[in-house]
Amino acid sequence: MSDQARILKFQIFRYNPLKQGDKPRMVTYEVTEAPGMTIFIALNDIRENQDPSLQFDFVCRAGICGSCGMVVNGRPDLACRTLTSKFPEGEIKLLPLPGFELIGDLSVNTGKFMRAMSERVESWIHDIKADEVNYDRLEERMDPEVADQIYELERCVECGCCISACATKRMRPDFLSAVGFMRLARYALDPRDKRTDEEFYEIMGDDDGVFGCMTLLGCEDYCPKDLPHQTQIAYLRRKMVQVR
């Protein structure tokens, strides 16, 4: 690395819907790059030293909480773990994730969307006995491999990148999308969830569900956690076709 620090050019989408008369626009900020700089560090630098009104969301800043999904040079991704050194031109364009309600600038309301998704797919173990479990006794046994497989599908951090990368979602506003399918696949795999295939069909057996997917697989391409969306959507489809 040369000792001469680069000047990075950030082009950032700015719009505060709560500020009267504010108009959406792109604003350019210059930041002196530091070694190991991430977009998280750069955005805080801009907020503290150039424009304290700049809105964005970070929580863990370690790539595990899913707060900071945004469109980075055209790709939905987690901003906190994106190093600025990845961009040889030193130009970084940031836009809020499409498909979600805009709060302001780079901040979108993924929380509201994800809660609604969880309610829609009933994202919990369906077993009347779960509430009456005698927790003094040995727990129900589970095949170790099944436990590992469930964890593989539960690694989703609800960042929303799959929604933003989904063309079907753009055409069908109520499309359940990859995040919802992954959640359903996770519960369908879980022996503790007593839902039948017919019950799962009620949730996803239509064009806003798994049959609406156009298989463009932006979800698979852009998932920051590399979850197996393609395999799981195909699996759910086969499973649902067999129901009726």
Partner: peptide
């Protein structure tokens, strides 16, 4: 603590298991 973790197992945490 053992009760908490067992309740949590029933509520869906995919705890790693003994092989």
């Amino acid at each position: 603590a053992p009760k908490a973790i067992r309740q949590f197992a029933a509520w869906g945490v995919p705890w790693s298991r003994v092989q």
